[in-house]
C-alpha cells in the first residue's frame, strides 16, 4: 500500500478557488451588481445546499430513509433565534448552539428510532418532525403559530459561504474516512457489515446526528435572513422538498446534492413569473426527471475534474 501523500498543491489550489469565488460574490454584493432578488435566491440556494448535503449523508450514504429533516431545521432555527433575540448571544454562538441543539435532537430521536428499518423508520421520522412542529405551535414563549418575527438580518454572504464550506468539508471528509466506509457498508448490506464487526447502530446514529446538526445550522441561517420563523414553515412538505433535492441529485453523491439544490432553487425562481402553473410544471419536471433518470442526476458518482475530462474526452 502506498503511503498517502498530502497534496499541498491541490489543497492550495482548491483554497484559492474558494477564496476567488467568495470574493467575487462578495464584491458583486457590496457594489450592488447583484440585485436584492438575486441575493435572496443565492441565500436560499446556500441554505438548500446545506440541507440537501446534510440529508444526503443520512439518506444517501447511510441509506436510512428520513422524512423529518424539516423538524431538525426547526430546532436549529428556534434555538438560534431565541439565543440572539431573547438571550442576546452573538450570532456565532447562536449558530454553534443551533448545530448542537439539532444534533442533540438527532441523537435523542435517532437512538430509539434507528432500530427501525426502511419505511417504518421513514414514518417514525416523519411523525417526530411533525411532533416538533405541533409542540412549537403550542409554546407561548415562541408565540405559538405566529412564530417569532422581527429577527435581525445577521446572515450574510460570509456566514452562508462558511456554512456551505463547513458542511461540505465535514460530510466529504467523513464519507471518505474509515467512518465513511463503515457508514456506506451499512447502506450496502447491514447484516454483512454487522458480521464484519461494524457497530452499525453507532454509525447510523453518528450520520443521523451530524445530518441533523447541519440541518439545524441551515435553520439558524434561514431564521436570521428571512425575518420570521413560524412552525408551519417546517412541516413535512418542507422535508419532502429536501428529500426531492437529495434523490434528484443522486443518492450517495454529495456533488449531486449540491447540483440538485442549485437546480431546484433556480427552477423555483424561474417559475415565479408563471404563478398559475408553476406547481404543475414543477411536478411534471419531477416526474419526468425521475422516469428518465431514476438514479438521479449524478447517480452515486461524484462530479470532479476527472468527470469533466471524461465527459469531454469521450472514452477514457
Amino acid at each position: 500500500m502506498q503511503t498517502k501523500k498530502i497534496k499541498w498543491t491541490r489543497i492550495l489550489l482548491e483554497a484559492a478557488f474558494l477564496v476567488v469565488l467568495f470574493s467575487l460574490v462578495q464584491y458583486s454584493i457590496s457594489t450592488h451588481m447583484l440585485s436584492q432578488y438575486y441575493q435572496i435566491n443565492l441565500t436560499s440556494m446556500c441554505i438548500n445546499i446545506i440541507l440537501a448535503v446534510s440529508l444526503s449523508l443520512i439518506n444517501g450514504f447511510t441509506g436510512q430513509l428520513s422524512l423529518g429533516h424539516a423538524g431538525f431545521m426547526a430546532v436549529g432555527a428556534y434555538t438560534a433565534v431565541i439565543m440572539t433575540t431573547k438571550l442576546d448571544y452573538p450570532f456565532l454562538a447562536a449558530l454553534v448552539g443551533a448545530l448542537f441543539a439539532a444534533g442533540l435532537a438527532g441523537f435523542v430521536i435517532g437512538v430509539p428510532t434507528l432500530r427501525l428499518k426502511g419505511d417504518y423508520l421513514a414514518i417514525a421520522t416523519l411523525a417526530l418532525g411533525e411532533i416538533i412542529r405541533v409542540v412549537l405551535q403550542n409554546i407561548d414563549y415562541v408565540n405559538g403559530p405566529a412564530g417569532i418575527s422581527g429577527i435581525p438580518k445577521l446572515t450574510t454572504w460570509a456566514w452562508l459561504f462558511g456554512g456551505v464550506v463547513l458542511t461540505l468539508l465535514v460530510v466529504v471528509n467523513l464519507v471518505n474516512s474509515s467512518y465513511g466506509r463503515a457508514i456506506i457498508s451499512v447502506r450496502e448490506d447491514e447484516i454483512a457489515a454487522e458480521l464484519m464487526g461494524i457497530n452499525t447502530t453507532k454509525y447510523k446514529v453518528l450520520a443521523f446526528v451530524i445530518g441533523a446538526g447541519f440541518a439545524g445550522l441551515a435553520g439558524a441561517l434561514y431564521g436570521h435572513y428571512f425575518y420570521i420563523i413560524k412552525p408551519e414553515t417546517f412541516n413535512f412538505l418542507k422535508s419532502f422538498d429536501i428529500l426531492v433535492m437529495v434523490v434528484l441529485g443522486g443518492l450517495g453523491s454529495t456533488t449531486g446534492a449540491v447540483i440538485a439544490a442549485i437546480f431546484i432553487t433556480i427552477l423555483t425562481a424561474a417559475l415565479q413569473p408563471f404563478p398559475e402553473i408553476r406547481m404543475i410544471i414543477y411536478a411534471l419536471i419531477l416526474i419526468v426527471v425521475m422516469i428518465y433518470r431514476p438514479q438521479g442526476l449524478m447517480g452515486n458518482k461524484e462530479f470532479s475534474r476527472q468527470t469533466l475530462g471524461r465527459i469531454w474526452g469521450g472514452r477514457q
Binding site: L65, F240, L243, V247, L248, L286, M290, G296
Partner: peptide
C-alpha cells in the same frame, strides 16, 4: 426511493 419521488410529483 425514486418511485417515492415520482409519487410526490
Amino acid at each position: 426511493i425514486a418511485s417515492l419521488i415520482t409519487a410526490i410529483g
